[in-house]
Simulated scan of single mutants.
Amino acid sequence: GDGIPVTGTYVVARIYDPGNKLVSTIDLEDLGNGSYTGSYYVEYGLSEGVYTLEVEAFVDNSSVAVDTVYFNISAPSGYSIEVETDKDVYMVPDNATVKALLIVEGSPRPGENLTACLYFPNGTLAEEKLMQDLGNGSYTTWFLLPENYPSGVYSVEVSTVINDTIIMGNTTTVVSNGKLKFTITVNDGYVVNGTVIVNITARVEEGVPIAKVYYHIDEGSAIEIQKPEDGNYDSGEETVIISFDAKHYLGEHEIYVTIEAVDGTNSSKIYVVNFYVRVQPKRYSIIAPYFKHHIREYRASELARSVGANLTGIWWWDTENQEYHSYIPGVSGPDEDFVLNFATGYFIYLTDESYIVEIGW
């Protein structure tokens, strides 16, 4: 204050990334001569760009001074470490071999000290090892993966220091203990012109990547879903669409979904939902919902969409008010779209013989 160094003051430094998001807060140490110090570790994987360092001093809990400087973080040019493991998936117990290639100024560099770190799926360090120099710029080591290691996606990080510059490389690998937990969530399900469409999310709780999702109708052959909604099977949670023409199946049937994880080394078959198919003749019929529960609320519009253009009207008799209520596809509004209740009969009119497909339980 007033040009005189001040001691005994609380000084804090805040670091913001290029997107102005706070990434670190550091309480600075008082050196006793008006100077304050602290350190920030620039870890591997930070976004490159201009960072903001804001330093603020407090006296009696009141801010008395703020200063801001800027610094740039960029990857060191001419240095790289390429890291790989001998397998993409390990079934414990097993040994994981790690290989690294150190490149300096475009050429492999032997004779350096490289350290490999194995991290659990939660980010904590499992083991750290000094790698063996193979003499040609390549380095290697191995990690024991015992039976008690949890399933999940592990990361391997290799680093060294050259000319006061930290060079790092990393990769990921999957470890499975054969006790994966699979779950299925049905997000939506409906029928359009006899085609069943079910939207589901498949999960492996340990975060192990899903390799494949397929379904069976009853105990029939597996039908593989080629791609999830995001385009690739590459995570422990994938959303997929099951779609098939149900008119080939009369009566009640079951849909089973199978999730395969870690390249098929673990899988689980999970029952999803029932569907029921019946054939109704042209002209007037009386029908009742087959299932008591449905994925969507079972309204007249759902029945009309499931049948298609052949269905021209749905009616029900209101015994309390002694009057008919009707739903005419393409004409009736949302306020006329009544719920179809279990064990209640409804009149329908079909211009031709039609399949009525219902999904539920």
Results as ranks from 00 to 15, higher is better:
Lys87Leu: 14
Phe342Lys: 14
Tyr70Pro: 03
Ser74Thr: 15
Gly49Phe: 01
Asn274Leu: 15
Ala222Asp: 04
Tyr324His: 09
Ser243Val: 03
Tyr276Phe: 02
Thr173Ile: 13
Ala116Arg: 01
Tyr149Cys: 13
Val59Gly: 02
Glu254Pro: 01
Glu229Pro: 00
Tyr327Gln: 02
Val196Met: 00
Tyr355Asn: 12
Thr140Ser: 15
Gly236Cys: 06
Gln132Lys: 09
Gly308Thr: 00
Asp88Gly: 08
Ser176Glu: 11
Val279Phe: 00
Arg203Val: 08
Ser285Ala: 03
Tyr355Cys: 05
Leu350Ala: 09
Gly78Phe: 13
Ser332Asn: 13
Asp318His: 12
Ser39Asn: 09
Asp88Lys: 00
Phe182Lys: 05
Lys212Phe: 05
Glu54Cys: 06
Asp352Trp: 04
Val262Tyr: 10
Thr9Val: 15
Ile255Glu: 10
Asn266Gly: 09
Asp164Cys: 03
Val198His: 05
Phe291Val: 11
Val11Gln: 07
Val50Lys: 11
Asp67Phe: 02
Val192Trp: 08
Glu358Pro: 07
Asn232Trp: 13
Phe71His: 02
Ile359Trp: 00
Thr195His: 10
Ile200Phe: 10
Val273Glu: 12
Ser63Gly: 04
Pro209Phe: 01
Ala309Thr: 13
Gly236Thr: 03
Gly333Gln: 13
Ile197Met: 07
Gly236Arg: 04
Ser63Thr: 03
Ala343Ser: 06
Val89Ala: 05
